[in-house]
Simulated assay, not measured.
Amino acid sequence: MNPLVACLILCAVIAAATWITSVVTNEHSWVDRIWSIAPVAYAWILAAGGGLEPRLVLMAALVTLWGIRLTFNFARKGGYRPGAGEDYRWAVLRGRMPRPAFEVFNLLFIAGFQNALILAFCLPLWTASEGSRPLGGWDILLAAVFVAFLAGETIADQQQWEFHRWKAAERAAGRVPEPGFVQTGLWRFSRHPNFFFEQAQWWVFYGFAVTATGVWLHWTLVGAVALSGLFIGSTIFTESLTRAKYADYDAYRKRTSMLVPWFAKRREPSPEPV
Rank of each mutant, 00 (worst) to 15 (best):
F105Y: 09
G185C: 01
G136N: 10
F163A: 05
W187P: 01
A120W: 04
D139A: 04
Q160W: 03
A169P: 08
T127C: 03
R133C: 01
A128V: 06
Q160G: 05
I68D: 10
R69P: 07
H164Q: 14
G85K: 15
L58T: 04
F149K: 12
S190R: 01
A143P: 09
L58E: 05
A120F: 03
W90R: 15
R96V: 02
W126H: 08
H164F: 12
W166Q: 14
L135W: 03
L107Y: 08
I118M: 11
L186E: 00
R171K: 14
A61S: 13
V176G: 00
F181V: 00
A172V: 03
Q159T: 04
V176N: 02
Y88V: 13
A61R: 10
R188M: 00
H164K: 13
F121L: 07
F113H: 09
Q183S: 01
A120G: 05
G131Q: 05
L108V: 14
F102W: 15
E130F: 02
P134R: 07
E86W: 04
E170F: 00
F113E: 08
V104N: 10
W166G: 04
L141I: 07
G67S: 11
F113N: 08
V92K: 15
G79H: 14
W126P: 04
W138T: 08
T71K: 13
A120T: 04
F189L: 04
F163L: 08
A151G: 13
T127I: 04
V145C: 07
F113P: 06
D157E: 13
F189K: 03
F146V: 06
A84I: 09
S129H: 05
I140R: 11
G137I: 06
P82I: 07
A101N: 11
F146S: 05
D157H: 11
G152Q: 07
G79F: 13
D157S: 07
M97N: 14
G83Y: 03
I118Q: 11
K77R: 15
W166R: 15
